[in-house]
């Protein structure tokens, strides 16, 4: 039998290892999440990320090598986003009835998301690069990265902050909404989608289809609103 080191070197060169690792880590996360009766602290995405980072660090693998394999999972984000049209279509009657509320809460929510992130981060002394990179944190990752690139920040740092924001919203957003006494699925889904984009939408879809549809809609609209508004706001106030 070849020694383990050799086998590992061979496997690490193929995308299969990191692809499988991603699937296993996520399913382990889901398993733990269910075992803890859906305790938000045991978010499956968070568990998977922590586990994978630990393994990669322990084996001295860099992110680029990991992504060679994981890109196949990452690629499916595109088609999955397109597929959000289906729950949206199923709930279209409800969306049409709330058009005014959707428009106003979108614009105010989107402005709150960017401005409050900028203000809090710079008030607590973050460097300009960090402030810029956190500004579009509530926008879906590809758009947020595009905006930050345009402003001159760090797109890859933005991707991380966007995902942390998503996980946080998925974990604690529902608890906050319940504490605020907001129980209707449309408002709950829409608020989670504006704040926590796709990860929040994934969580909302698991709970309720109406919430999922409104969350997906909010994610799309907020991507558009932030992409248009944030560069203007940044140019006006922070340059």
């Amino acid at each position: 039998m070849k020694d383990f080191q050799q086998i590992w070197v061979y496997l690490a060169a193929s995308p299969l290892l990191h692809l499988t690792m991603t699937l296993v880590a996520y399913q382990a996360g889901v398993f733990i999440y269910r075992k803890t009766r859906l305790n938000p602290l045991f978010n499956p995405v968070l568990i998977a990320i922590v586990a994978i980072v630990a393994v990669l660090t322990a084996t001295g693998t860099d992110y680029a090598a990991y992504f060679e394999g994981a890109q196949f999972v990452h690629f499916l984000l595109g088609p999955a986003t397109v597929a959000l049209a289906v729950p949206l279509y199923r709930q279209f009657d409800k969306v049409r009835k709330s058009a005014l509320a959707i428009l106003v809460s979108l614009l105010c929510g989107s402005a709150t998301a960017s401005l409050s992130a900028i203000i809090i981060a710079s008030w607590l002394g973050a460097g300009e690069l960090s402030v810029m990179s956190v500004a579009p944190k509530s926008t879906t990752a590809p758009i947020a990265m595009g905006i930050v690139e345009q402003l001159g920040g760090l797109p890859s740092l933005t991707a991380v902050l966007v995902i942390l924001t998503g996980i946080l919203g998925a974990m604690f957003g529902p608890l906050l909404l319940t504490a605020l006494g907001i129980h209707d699925w449309e408002a709950r889904g829409f608020a989670i989608g504006v704040s926590s984009h796709g990860i929040g939408t994934a969580r909302a879809l698991q709970v309720n289809e109406v919430a999922g549809a409104f969350s997906g809609l909010a994610m799309g609209l907020n991507a558009l609103a932030t992409a248009i508004l944030l560069p203007l706001v940044w140019g006006l106030f922070f340059q």
Binding site: Y26, Y63, Y66, V160
Partner: peptide
């Protein structure tokens, strides 16, 4: 859908240095 965000999230490992430096303002902002 949640699974599909894992690969991008692992990208956090490329930014440990900057995150260490600005962790407080960034986490407070988020």
């Amino acid at each position: 859908l949640s699974l599909l965000f894992v690969p991008a999230g692992v990208g956090i490992m490329a930014h440990f240095a900057l995150l260490k430096q600005d962790w407080l303002p960034l986490s407070a902002a988020i």
